[in-house]
Every structure is written in C-alpha cells, then in structure tokens.
Amino acid sequence: MKLVIAMLMDGVIYASWLFVIAAGLTLIYGVMRILNMAHGSFYAIGAYGGASLVGFYLAGGYPPWGAYFMLLGAALIGGTIVGLLIERGLLRMMYGRDEVVMILVTYAILLILEDVIKLIWGVDAYFAYQPYTLLGRTKLAGLSFANYDILLIFVSALICFVLWWGLNRTRKGKLLQAVIHDRDTAAFLGINVTRMFTVTFVIGAVLGALAGALTAPGISVMPGIGVEVIILAFAVVVIGGLGSVGGALLGALIVGLARSAAVHLYPDAELFVIYGVMGLVLAFRPQGLFAIATARKI
C-alpha cells in the first residue's frame, strides 16, 4: 500500500513536471509543424535564470516568499527574449522547409544555445534550494513529500487549465486552432498566420523556461540538463500525439507513472520503460493517442 502511494505520488509529480515541458513543445509543433529540439535549451535557460535570480534576490535580504515570483519572472523574461530572438531572427527565414530539415535547424540552435548558456553561467552548478525547503514537507501514509512538489502538481494543473481555456474559450485560441487544423485555409481566411507563429513560439518558449525555473529549486542546475530533458519531452508528445495539448497531458501521466513504477520496482529499467511504453503505444497507434488527422488524396 505504502509502495503504491509512493509510486502514484511520485508518478503524478513527475508527470506534472513533464507536462509543462511537453505542453510547450507540442503547442509549437501543432501550430508551426516544428519539432523544436531547442526546447531543451529553453528549459535550461529557465532553470539557470531562475536559480541565479533567486540567488540575487535572497542575497539582497528580501522576504523569502518573493523568490517564487523571481522564478516566474525568470521564465517569462528568459522565454520571451529567447523565443522572440529565435523566431524572428532565424526560424522566419526557414519556413516552408521540410519538417525533418526544421528538426536539424532546431538541433543547430540547441548546439548554439548550449554554449551560450555556458558563456553566461559558466560550467559550475547552481543551487537555489530555498524555495524548495521553505514550504516544508507533508507526511502522507507514513511517507514524506516536499510541499513544493505537491505545489508543482497544482501549478501544472493550472497551466493545463489556462491552456485549455485559452485554446477553446477565447477568440484568439479558436483562431489558433484553425491554424493547427489547416494552415493554408486559415491564411486564406485572413488569419495573420505569421503573427500566430511568433506568439505561439514565444508562449512555447516561456512554457519550456517555466518548466526549467520551477525545477531549478529541486535540482543542481548544470550544463547538459536541457539535452536530457528534450528526449523525455519527445517521448511524451509522441505518445500523446504530436500537436495535441490533451495528448501531452495523457502522455505525461503515462510516462510519469511508468517511470515511477520502474524506479520503485526495478530502478535499472528507468529509461528503458519510458521508451518501451513509447514503442508499445506507437506499435498500436502509429500517430500517437490523440493525433491530428491528415487526409491523402489520389
């Protein structure tokens, strides 16, 4: 029983973390048809930005609860700047190319950003554990969980709701859905697709950075974290169906629970399980669980 609760809780916590990363990735793919490898770098930038901003803030002796706003601020500022620079400065020149070529373009951006991060923050690890420990821990069925992690579940749920509401209940969101379903027709109907692309990319980048910033207090922030994260996010969005936010949620839960089960029962199989699940899902549903249908005519 204890094991089951531990597995479930860890799984859900892990899933909520995965969802925030994957949501940005899948949103960008859905609208722009770009599988963005640089998303891992957005995550890393958020983590570094969050960690160093929290460090500055606390060193100034301000009230500690403000550190949470520093994390949010780092994600917003970092994500917006990087997102705008990349979309306006680079991706714009590449639109209309093959999807696979776009993967390579974003791969190049990832390589560049990895070194930019090293140039700005160096190669030493950063710690910003205060926001994590500040909230204390909760005992549940004899197990101890960090309140920060539990908060993360709620933050993730909130992000999920905001995305759902934004996409389904606002005018702009519906226009965006039109672009997701049929870019050409949407452009033909007078939707400013170029602007949509910019906005989407920035939102996606901010989500990636937010995931990093929220994670920063719980980990040691070092080079290479972005490269690791991106392949996990890929697995999540591929399982859920590329381009579907609902799919990302489901994919995150599946991967989160599967990984947590592996960690508790058979730790050696951790990575294996994630891709095993992905393989299994794709073998039966090649387009992922919630795929956007495409038609082919002859």
Partner: peptide, 9 residues
C-alpha cells in the same frame, strides 16, 4: 558546439 551549430545553419 556553437561553432558546429552555426556551421550547420
């Protein structure tokens, strides 16, 4: 890595 990335672009 940055040099590699720029060359790729």
């Amino acid at each position: 890595q940055m040099i590699l990335g720029i060359s790729l672009l």
